[in-house]
C-alpha cells in the first residue's frame, strides 16, 4: 500500500481483529481500519466492553496478540519483537493513564527525565533542561524537586503529561486521562491537550467516558461491539 497517496498520517491500521479466549472465545475487535492524522485530537468513546480500551492497547504496541496491520510514524509494527516495540514506544509514544503511575521514590523532575534518559539521545544536562521546559509549559516548574507523593491529583497528572511529552513523541495515548480528576482538573488537562494539538501539532488519542471531554475534542471515534460506528 502506498501511504503517500493519503494526506500525512501518524497512525494507520488495517483490518485489526482480536479475540479474547477467557472465559470463552470472543471476538472483541472486528476488522478495525483507523487512520489518525498529525495534530488530531481524537476521542475514542463507547460503552463499557465495546473494545475501545482493547483497541487502545493494540495501538499502544503493548498488546501484540492481534491480527491485521499496525503502522505508526511510517513504521510497520506488526510482527516486531517485544524489545523493538519497547524501544519504539520510548521514542514515538507518550502515555497518560487514569492514574498517574509516577515512580514514588523519585522527584517530579526525575520522573519526567526517566524516559529521556532511557532514550539516551541527549546528555544528562540537556535532558534536565528539557524536563524543566516541559514542566514549565505545564505550570509545574516550581514543584520540580518535590517528591511526587507531595503533589495533588491534578498536579500529578500534569507531571505525567510532562513525562509523556519529554521525548517529543509522534503520538500521545491516554486511557481515561481525566477519569480520576475533579471537574476543575479535568478542564485543566483538557486545555493542555487542546493547546498541545493546536499550538504544537501534537497528535493525541484518548479513550474517555467523559462526554463533554469527547465533544470538545477534534474528532470522535465511537465503538460498539468491536466495530467503529462513527
Amino acid at each position: 500500500m502506498n501511504t503517500t497517496a493519503f494526506e500525512p498520517h501518524v497512525l494507520h491500521t488495517h483490518k485489526i481483529t482480536k479475540y479474547f479466549y477467557e472465559p470463552d472465545k470472543f471476538q472483541v475487535l472486528k476488522e478495525i481500519d483507523l487512520t489518525v492524522h498529525k495534530g488530531e485530537f481524537l476521542s475514542l468513546v463507547g460503552k463499557s466492553g465495546c473494545g475501545k480500551s482493547t483497541l487502545m492497547y493494540v495501538l499502544s504496541t503493548m498488546d501484540t496478540d492481534y491480527e491485521g496491520e499496525l503502522e505508526i510514524a511510517g513504521v510497520r509494527l506488526t510482527d516486531k519483537t517485544q524489545n523493538e516495540l519497547a524501544a519504539f514506544r520510548n521514542k514515538h509514544i507518550g502515555f497518560v493513564f487514569q492514574f498517574h503511575y509516577l515512580l514514588p521514590e523519585f522527584t517530579t523532575l526525575q520522573n519526567v527525565m526517566i524516559p529521556a534518559l532511557k532514550l539516551g539521545k541527549y546528555s544528562r544536562k540537556e535532558v534536565e533542561d528539557r524536563a524543566y521546559a516541559k514542566l514549565e509549559m505545564l505550570g509545574m516548574k516550581e514543584h520540580a524537586l518535590k517528591p511526587t507523593s507531595k503533589l495533588s491529583g491534578g498536579q500529578q497528572q500534569r507531571v505525567a503529561i510532562a513525562r509523556a511529552l519529554i521525548n517529543d513523541p509522534d503520538i500521545i495515548m491516554g486511557d481515561e486521562p481525566t477519569g480520576n480528576l475533579d471537574s476543575y482538573n479535568t478542564h485543566v488537562v483538557f486545555d493542555i491537550f487542546q493547546e498541545l494539538t493546536h499550538t504544537y501539532k501534537q497528535t493525541i488519542i484518548a479513550v474517555t467516558h467523559d462526554e463533554e471531554f469527547a465533544r470538545k475534542s477534534d474528532r470522535i471515534v465511537e465503538m460498539s461491539d468491536g466495530h467503529i460506528v462513527r
Binding site: 503493548m62 514506544r89 515512580l103 524516559p115 532511557k118
Partner: peptide, 8 residues
C-alpha cells in the same frame, strides 16, 4: 509504567 515507557 516503565515497560510502557519503553523499558525492555
Amino acid at each position: 509504567i516503565l515497560k510502557a515507557m519503553g523499558f525492555a
